[in-house]
Every structure is written in structure tokens, then in C-alpha cells.
């Protein structure tokens, strides 16, 4: 049976992780390579690096991080943030990432999904979607709107329509981030996660709002997510990945326990 994936997400700026991170065992709190190794050793199923530098002149720094990470971990990882062209994608994949995540650029130019899938395979292309709850309207019947620029810019695009469209264009996976839940640590947005996960056949990674293990249990069962992104709850040392996985396993949720 396919395990539900637990995926730590690291925000990287100028080659360093940005959140003040507190580990017990002598991990350099700002070095993404050391953090990647730490999460690999403690049972992460996959990793996501989000480059919040995201300007093309600085891209080289991130590429170097990707190259170093790829030498020390042997699980899949994806890179997102500011990837606009096939050439951006190719650079990140050649440096060792398994997948690339596109968000704003795909909204502006949906062909990027199709071209990326054509060039590198659907399994490489993750559509990152930021969504926000709005009153249902003829334009946005699902009641969830796609937003870009980290949630600042509404697009007038219905989230459910966009998820289906991305699947049709060849995205291999959707990483769904609720702007309403993001940063709250009050739990994932279950309604939209379930709605989208049931509407597409590709896997959906839930993102935004994780604060404790029961939030993951909820989104992986009632929310129908295939994977859960986590950040603060492990970065600050509040929980470890084995603790989270044990909690989920005790509730009958399939997770990878041997690594």
C-alpha cells in the first residue's frame, strides 16, 4: 500500500535557510545542506526547497545548494520559486532535483506546464497553487480563488478549474497551499484539499497550517491528501519526523517507518 508522504519544506534565501531553526543535535541552523541531511536521516520521505531569492542573477547560489544537497541525500526533492522558463527548470533538474515546482509563472503562462512535461516528463512537474477562500460566484464557483505573489494578487481563476487544467496540461502533482491557513499552525484547510484531491487523479500535497501531528492525520484522511508539507513544527524542534510518523501509524495511516 502506498504510504502517505511527510515532506519538510525549507525556505532558502541567498543559500541559507531563513527561519531560525532549533535542532538538538548540532545542526548548523542555517545551512540547507545540513538540514537536508538531518531530515533525510530522520525519515523525511521527500524534501521541498523554496528559493525565496528568486531573482535570476542569484539563481547560481541556489543551483549550488541543489548540487550539494543531491550528493548527500538519496530521496526525491523538488525546487520551486521563481522558475519561469524551460531553461530555469533544466538547470535545477541537472543540478540534481527530481522535480520542479511552478506557481506564478504557470498561471501567467500555462503552456509552461505542458512544455515542462513534454521536455522532462510529467513526474518532474509540480504545480504549486496558492488558494484563498472567497464567496462562490459564477466566475469562481468552487469558492476558492487562485492567488499569486505569495497571496497578494488575486487572479480571478477558480482553484478547482485550475487544478483540473494543470492535470490536463501534464502536471504530475499538485502542491496545494491555503493562504488562509498558512502560518496559523491551526491545521490544514481540509475542504479545499479534499475538493481538489477528489477532482484530479494526480497526487495532491497539502500545504499551510500544520502545527501538530493531528493536523497531518486530519488532512491525510478527511482531507484526502496524498502527502503533507510541514515546516515550523519540525524546524523549531517542536516535533520530530519519527514522532509524527508514529502518531500517524497508530491511527492506521500508512507511513514509511523503516529507513
Amino acid at each position: 500500500m502506498l504510504s502517505k508522504r511527510i515532506i519538510p519544506c525549507l525556505d532558502v534565501r541567498d543559500g541559507r535557510t531563513t527561519k531560525g531553526i532549533k535542532f538538538q543535535n548540532n545542526v548548523d541552523i542555517g545551512d540547507p545542506v545540513e538540514m537536508a541531511r538531518h531530515y533525510y536521516d530522520t525519515g523525511a520521505d521527500e524534501l521541498v526547497f523554496y528559493d525565496i531569492t528568486a531573482s535570476s542573477d542569484r539563481r547560481g547560489i541556489m543551483i549550488e545548494v541543489v548540487r550539494r544537497v543531491a550528493k548527500v541525500i538519496f530521496i526525491p526533492f523538488s525546487v520551486g520559486g521563481g522558475l519561469r522558463t524551460l531553461e530555469d527548470m533544466r538547470e535545477v533538474l541537472l543540478a540534481g532535483a527530481e522535480k520542479v515546482s511552478v506557481n506564478t509563472a504557470a498561471v501567467r503562462n500555462p503552456r509552461l506546464i505542458a512544455e515542462g512535461a513534454q521536455a522532462f516528463g510529467s513526474q518532474c512537474i509540480v504545480l504549486g497553487m496558492d488558494v484563498k477562500r472567497v464567496p462562490p460566484s459564477p466566475q469562481i464557483p468552487s469558492g476558492y480563488e487562485v492567488v499569486i505573489h505569495g497571496g497578494r494578487t488575486p487572479t480571478g481563476i477558480d482553484a478547482l478549474w485550475w487544478a483540473r487544467e494543470a492535470e490536463r496540461l501534464g502536471a504530475g502533482e499538485i502542491c496545494l497551499n491555503s493562504i488562509d491557513a498558512d502560518g496559523t499552525q491551526d491545521g490544514y484547510e481540509l475542504t479545499v484539499t479534499r475538493m481538489i484531491s477528489e477532482a484530479v487523479s494526480i497526487p495532491v500535497i497539502a500545504s499551510g497550517g500544520a502545527g501538530k501531528p493531528e493536523h497531518l492525520a486530519e488532512v491525510l484522511t478527511r482531507g484526502c491528501a496524498d502527502a503533507a508539507l510541514i515546516a515550523s513544527m519540525v524546524h523549531y524542534g517542536t516535533y520530530t519526523i519519527p514522532e509524527i510518523k508514529d502518531y500517524l501509524a497508530q491511527r492506521g495511516i500508512p507511513v514509511r517507518l523503516t529507513w
Binding site: L2, S3, S201, P203
Partner: peptide, 15 residues
């Protein structure tokens, strides 16, 4: 085979 509740591609960790 496509079937309800089973995601294709099969993506992730399995025994």
C-alpha cells in the same frame, strides 16, 4: 488500471 480512489501516477513510497 484506473480505479476510484487510486491515484495515477503511482507516486511515492511503497513496499
Amino acid at each position: 488500471p484506473r480505479q476510484p480512489g487510486i491515484k495515477i501516477p503511482h507516486m511515492g513510497w511503497n513496499r
